[in-house]
């Protein structure tokens, strides 16, 4: 029986981590599903869907030698591999401003009030160490109007002194 797992790997970044991890998984009979890798603050981070007949402990044992060698934290969770049911976003937000604690909580809190489902969130800290800036992109789906989202976000724009651009996404299917 094939099981689906979500692998979470975190460690100091260096070239070749994805190649080595995916080789070990392939050689063990694994098949990768969707994955998302990002370098966050110099750290290598990846979440990978793995389909394999092994039990959870066997997957952990498979990865442990590599984790020791590459100095990676590895976490394995059994999941439902619900492929082929993508939800398309209908709104996109770009947020930026002077870095400060609470931007994500404020923005996503406003979105959650309208049951906005975040499908993708990426953020970076740029600028200089003395004057860091925070930049965040969010895509998601909400069954509401653009103006209601704007209204919900408006108070925190002045409160936090951040810039929020909100755009509708109308996917062209041809």
């Amino acid at each position: 029986m094939q099981n689906w797992y979500m692998l979470t790997l975190v460690g100091r970044d260096r070239p070749g981590i994805v190649a080595e991890v995916s080789r070990v998984l392939f050689d063990a009979g694994g098949n990768l599903g969707e994955a998302s890798m990002a370098r966050l603050g110099g750290n290598f981070t990846v979440m990978i869907m793995l389909q394999i007949s092994s039990e959870k402990e066997e997957v952990e044992n498979l990865l442990n030698p590599l984790a020791d060698q590459l100095k990676l934290f590895v976490h394995v969770d059994k999941i439902i591999g619900d492929l082929h049911h993508h939800v398309d976003p209908n709104f996109r937000l770009s947020v930026h401003g002077a870095d400060q604690a609470g931007i994500v909580a404020a923005v996503t809190g406003s979105l959650a009030l309208l049951e906005f489902n975040i499908l993708n969130l990426e953020s970076d800290v740029g600028g200089t160490p003395e004057k860091p800036i925070y930049i965040m992109h969010i895509e998601g789906f909400a069954d509401c109007s653009l103006s209601s989202l704007e209204k919900s976000l408006q108070p925190l724009i002045s409160e936090k002194g951040i810039v929020v651009h909100l755009f509708p996404i109308d996917t062209m299917v041809g």
Binding site: H84, H86, D88, P89, I169, D170, T171, V173, G174
Partner: peptide
């Protein structure tokens, strides 16, 4: 830049 999908590429945009 805009989002596209295609009848010939199901479940992906």
């Amino acid at each position: 830049v805009g989002r596209e999908g295609c009848l010939s590429v199901p479940d992906y945009t």
